[in-house]
Simulated assay, not measured.
Amino acid sequence: MPLFAAKSADMMAGEASSKKKGKIGRQESCKSSGKDDLDERPIAGASSTQDKTRTGIRVYKIVVLGDGGVGKSAVTLQFVSHSFLDYHDPTIEDSYQQQAVIDGEPALLDILDTAGQVEFTAMRDQYMRCGEGFLICYSVTDRHSFQEALEYKKLIQKVRASEDTPLVLVGNKFDLHAQRKVSTEEGKSLARQLGCPFYETSACLRTYVDDAFHTLVREIRRKEREKLGLHGGDRKANRHSKWWRLRSILALVFKRKKQNFNS
């Protein structure tokens, strides 16, 4: 697997738009705050026909994981607003949306930037259940954060044992050459172990930030097609699989919650 994909060209004006949705409560990351959100936000594990806005754009629920201080918020903010902050308050939970055209197909990325601090670890199971794809981040200047990246993968497997969840591994701060503690080869080796694409990014220089998010969307699409049996499988038989039944149950539960909310 190559270390870097070719860097994406600057997106044309009007191709992408971003909207910060603000901090949301710890217990509401999988919920909606109102009727409009209920209509537009995706259902974790729901079929692609349900994961769309009213305009028909597919919504991709993405979760950014990693230890505190690795630059998760900086990477996310560069992607959605093309800006870099030297200082950012430690995240509890921020949610953002970014629209993009990836491989000629429009997509709305619903991004959850999570807390890396130890005191917020109780929230992680909720993140794991909600996300369709995960960006696992570490800092190339912090070996402990690199070692913890594998633990995040194990946590995802623990919560979603029956799913092959799309992942992208990101080594941030690669512009800080003098402070590097984790080599590029070590990052590539871990990515092979995790079975996922790998990028070294710089939130400061905005290097390979778009590529990491866009590749994760591609991974979600690819694995979704595989699950739906579009590559030689029997789609009808797949509808009766345990995975399909689970998705149907989740959709039904969400529908009932919506009816209760509206009543």
Score class of each variant (00 low, 15 high):
A6H: 10
D10V: 14
S17T: 10
S18G: 15
K19E: 10
K19S: 12
K19R: 15
G22C: 14
I24H: 12
E28V: 13
K35E: 14
D36G: 03
R41W: 13
P42T: 05
G45C: 07
G45S: 08
S48V: 10
D51H: 04
K52R: 15
R54H: 07
G56T: 02
V59G: 00
I62T: 02
I62F: 02
G66P: 06
G68W: 00
G71H: 01
T76S: 04
L77E: 02
V80R: 00
S81G: 04
S83V: 09
E93K: 07
D94H: 14
Y96Q: 03
Y96T: 04
Q98P: 01
Q99N: 13
V101Q: 12
I102G: 03
I102K: 01
I102P: 03
D103W: 06
D103T: 03
P106Q: 04
L108Y: 05
L109F: 12
D113L: 09
A122Y: 14
R124L: 08
R129W: 04
R129K: 14
C130G: 13
G131T: 07
G131N: 04
I136E: 01
S139G: 07
V140G: 01
D142A: 02
R143Q: 15
R143T: 12
S145F: 04
F146W: 01
E148V: 12
L150Q: 07
E151L: 12
Y152R: 01
E163G: 04
P166V: 07
K181V: 02
K181C: 05
E186W: 04
K188E: 11
A191C: 14
R192M: 14
G195Q: 11
P197M: 09
P197G: 11
F198H: 09
Y199S: 02
E200C: 12
T201E: 02
C204M: 15
L205G: 08
R206F: 11
R206H: 14
T207H: 14
D210C: 06
H214W: 05
L216V: 09
V217W: 00
R218V: 04
R218F: 02
R218L: 05
E219Q: 10
K223C: 01
L230T: 12
G232A: 06
N238C: 08
S241Q: 06
S241G: 13
K242C: 11
W243T: 06
R245F: 09
L246H: 15
K255I: 01
K258T: 06
N260F: 13
N262E: 15
